[in-house]
Simulated scan of single mutants.
Amino acid sequence: MTEYRYLGNSGLKITELTYGNWLTHASQVANEQAAACVKAALDVGITSFDTADTYANTAAETVLGDILKGERREGLEVFTKVYWPTGPKGPNDTGLSRKHIMESINGSLTRLQTDYVDLYQAHRYDTETPLEETMTAFADVVRQGKALYIGVSEWTGEQIRAGAALAKELNIQLISSQPQYSMLWRVIEDEVVPASEESGLSQIVWSPVAQGVLTGKYKPGQPAPEGSRGTDDKGGKDMISRFLGNDELLTRVQKLQPIADELDLSMAQLAVAWVLQNSNVAAAIIGASRPEQVYENAKASGVTIPDELMTRIDDALGDAVVRDPGMTVKTSPQTRPV
């Protein structure tokens, strides 16, 4: 069964594998299949679920709410996010203004069919809204009982420190950061992780399998397998394109197979287990288009990779790894999206 970890400097425990529905529910995956995947997650002991209002333009929250209806709410940890444009995408349907946060939490709770979310996350940093306005709005959401804890996603170390300082002044708990993190994408290690440790946050990481690249199914010099994310025209192919055009990287990824074999793991399980070796990581988000993927990924929970094999992973991937902490800013919007 999936193991639990504390989230940040709080008493909240979440499952170290968290089920996420970005790019799947109400998009790539039919509702019946989505329900089967969520059932599989519950079967393996996953009780933490991550979504966002922007996924499938709010429809992903609706799908998840319908599926979880009837489950014991106290036994679940439900996370959602706010920032990206939603609905008709008017001038105030985006960002982290007080107006957008207050309207968005109400919409999310209605779609998720719950009175509160366990974690409400700023999906990006809003360069056009004063941080004090954003954090004060989040504080009011917490005091109204609509969210228990606050988190951020893809914020820099400096932004995390500033947000944590305001949260402390406002007497609310900012406890999590949700960045991209994998064997291939380690940009959080030098700045975000130290800032999080100082400020009482831990990481809930997305894309631990690098959008599927670390499964090893994408071979150098070969087309993407039919039915894979690399052939998906609903957004998946765009997300993975930067990896698929790099044959040297794909060749290096193939060198991970013997290491996975030594641990009796699949390459996907190895990738998920790898991010969980970082002591500041509370959970890895796993997505699925088939229930079998959930059952397989669940085997990564509780795995310890010996130091010698961690070194061999580094040697195998070499300079294919992206480590530049500046990529957090470079890959985030510099103006509020519309």
Rank of each mutant, 00 (worst) to 15 (best):
A26R: 07
A26P: 08
A26W: 06
S27I: 13
S27D: 13
S27R: 14
S27W: 09
S27F: 03
Q28S: 14
Q28W: 10
Q28M: 12
Q28L: 13
V29A: 05
V29H: 01
V29N: 09
V29D: 05
V29L: 12
V29E: 10
V29Q: 13
A30F: 00
A30C: 04
A30E: 15
N31F: 04
N31G: 08
N31S: 13
E32T: 12
E32F: 02
E32Y: 00
E32G: 05
E32M: 00
Q33H: 02
Q33C: 02
Q33L: 11
A34I: 01
A35M: 09
A35F: 02
A35V: 06
A35D: 10
A35Y: 02
A36K: 15
C37T: 12
C37I: 09
C37G: 05
C37S: 14
C37P: 03
V38T: 12
V38I: 15
V38F: 04
K39T: 14
K39L: 10
A40C: 11
A40V: 12
A40Q: 08
A41R: 06
A41Y: 07
A41P: 08
A41C: 09
A41W: 06
L42R: 15
L42H: 06
L42E: 05
L42I: 07
L42A: 07
D43A: 14
V44N: 09
V44F: 08
V44S: 09
V44M: 10
V44P: 09
V44Q: 09
V44E: 09
G45S: 05
G45R: 05
G45A: 04
G45H: 05
G45Y: 04
I46Q: 02
I46K: 02
I46Y: 03
I46C: 06
I46G: 02
I46V: 13
T47A: 08
S48K: 06
F49K: 01
F49W: 01
F49G: 00
D50K: 05
T51G: 02
T51M: 04
T51C: 11
T51L: 03
A52Y: 02
A52G: 06
A52S: 14
D53R: 11
D53Q: 14
D53T: 09
D53H: 11
D53G: 13
D53V: 12
D53L: 12
T54L: 08
T54A: 14
T54D: 08
Y55I: 11
Y55Q: 11
A56I: 10
N57E: 11
N57G: 04
N57H: 09
N57P: 03
T58S: 11
T58E: 14
T58Q: 13
A59C: 01
A59W: 01
A59Y: 05
A59V: 00
A59R: 15
A59H: 13
A59M: 12
A59E: 15
A60W: 03
A60C: 10
A60S: 15
A60I: 07
A60K: 04
E61Q: 14
E61M: 07
T62D: 12
T62E: 15
T62G: 15
T62Q: 15
V63K: 02
V63I: 15
V63Y: 00
V63C: 09
V63M: 06
V63Q: 00
V63R: 01
L64W: 03
L64V: 07
L64K: 06
L64T: 04
L64A: 06
L64I: 07
